[in-house]
Amino acid sequence: MRLVKEFGTTWYNHGVASTESVYYTVHMLFGEYVRKKREALKATDRRFSVRQVAQRIGVEPAYLSKIERGDVAPPSEAKIRALANELGEDPDVLLALAGKVSSDLLEIIRKRPQLFAELIRELKTLPDHAILRVVREVRDGDW
């Protein structure tokens, strides 16, 4: 195994103080992000109005508006995935902004909790400006 740096993505540390403010920050961040992306798309394509996007992902337009304003908590994982698909975004990024972890990742951690908890904590100490990708090397032996 080897860790390889892949540059290009930055993870921000929001440094929030309380549980309440954490939720508030998450709602706002997620809502704002979705609104900005949707409106950027709407500028060139009217199909990205709140009403039409809401329809396509299967929620009420009023609910999507509230999500974008940060008035309500982000929707379910399935709806976030649908939204990511609709807006051409990475579902893992949207899920992270919503304070959620993808269910497949949870399943991976549940299977080997100690190993992955340890691994993630190890990665935590590595530089912020890089995403670290775990690479499996082809093992060379004795020949």
Binding site: V138, G141, D142
Partner: peptide
């Protein structure tokens, strides 16, 4: 499921 020599060589 592989011979010992293959494990020793490693690789693919």
């Amino acid at each position: 499921r592989l011979p010992e020599s293959w494990r020793q060589h490693g690789g693919v």
